[in-house]
Design a protein around this nucleic acid. Sequence first.
RNA 1: GCCGAGGUGACAGAGCGGCUAUGUGGCGGACUGCAGAUCCGCAUAAGUGGGUUCAACUCCCGCCCUCGGCUCCA
Length: 402
Amino acid sequence: MKLHNTRSRKKESFVPMKKGQVLMYTCGPTVHDYAHIGNFRTFVFQDLLKRWLSRDGYKVKHVMNITDVDERTIERAKRKKVRLADVTEAYEKAFFDDLDALNINRANVYPRASEHIGEMVELSEKLIEKDSAFVEKDGSIYFDITKSHNYGSLSGKRPRDNLRRKTKREDYDEPAHFVLWKPRDEMDGMIYWKTSLGEGRPGWHSECATMALKYLGDSMDIHSGGVDLVFPHHENGKAISEALTGKEFSKYYLHAEHLIIDGQKMSKTLRNHFTLRDILKKGCSPAAVRLILLGTHYRKKLNFTFKKLDASEKKIKRLESFIKMLSGANAKKNSKTLEGDVLKLKRDFEDSLNNDLNPAPALRAFFAFIDKYKNKDISQKDAKRILKTLKELDSVLGIMRA
RNA sequence: GCCGAGGUGACAGAGCGGCUAUGUGGCGGACUGCAGAUCCGCAUAAGUGGGUUCAACUCCCGCCCUCGGCUCCA
């Protein structure tokens, strides 16, 4: 199986650290609001990856964090004048409901940032000890990127490149040290923790490094998220972890391109910012949404349109009516071509997904197979064989109703 | 300034060095009391200039154009 590694910018053969086992960490939602359809593009891609690895015989240990302490969650709680937990618990629940709707398999662990404050404090202290971090006058703790020998190697960015751009402005501050710990701030209201570092709260980048270390150990096989996380989030998480352990943070980095709506970037001002709920309210099936999110290769921008949703809906209906038809199959003769077609379907399906999880040829093979048999008289025996095959492949696609 | 993606028929969107992609829409037909669904058939293609080749939409080079990222972000 080949996967595109962001770090090398090449497709590489996938070989996990330990045979038969995959350790995977994916960046989860910030529970300040309902997750939008673009978030789910990434999560569905990761689900496909996980399902494919599982089918390939790997035992996958998957950790996905829940970011429940950050500017946005705090902002939301302040505006609604409720406790932080009231906001984050509600949206976390909504997130899991949405995962179920899209038939996304659960991770093994969903650690919350708020429950790992102690570990993040410890991490900051260790980094100070190692001289990889420093304390500012106001009590902030920054990671010193000049101490990281390969900072920028994941994203391909050299801090110098930004220097030129930034110097055009006044607020230029180089190098781009990033914050590990923020001292208590008036803006945060009552949200802070009393720790050995003083009162404050953690910075976002500490979170993934800390929880990955705790639940997966010093190194993992796959770290994944949306492209926007390549820099700075994953670059920083990598720098933190590697400064601490001296070991490679992750062997592979997989990043999903963004979803756009009608050719435009999703944004609230353009009023094209959709949550999964918004879309399902229009009456389409969750399976059709999943099929759209699945259908475009993860490294290409996915152009989401309602026209496409209609086409997707029709495809799901075609699949469902075919399955219904199978239950009534009672032809006398068995098909002579079926066995060969099943083998070809499986082979095409596997070749396609083994090639950096390319879904298009796999889906094409899947639906072409259905189209070939939907108008044929099928025996009961053949119907069983067909259904078994479709179900087997759907353990990866997840678009059939159970 | 730096890094990256892409230009295929009305639209969306694949694969492939020679063989009809496919879907939506359109057109013609079948079926149906009408509609819908379904089925059969038809049309429309490869930004631009060169190169490699017996053969290029597919490989190589130049040009044009579009788009994305560069410490809020999946």
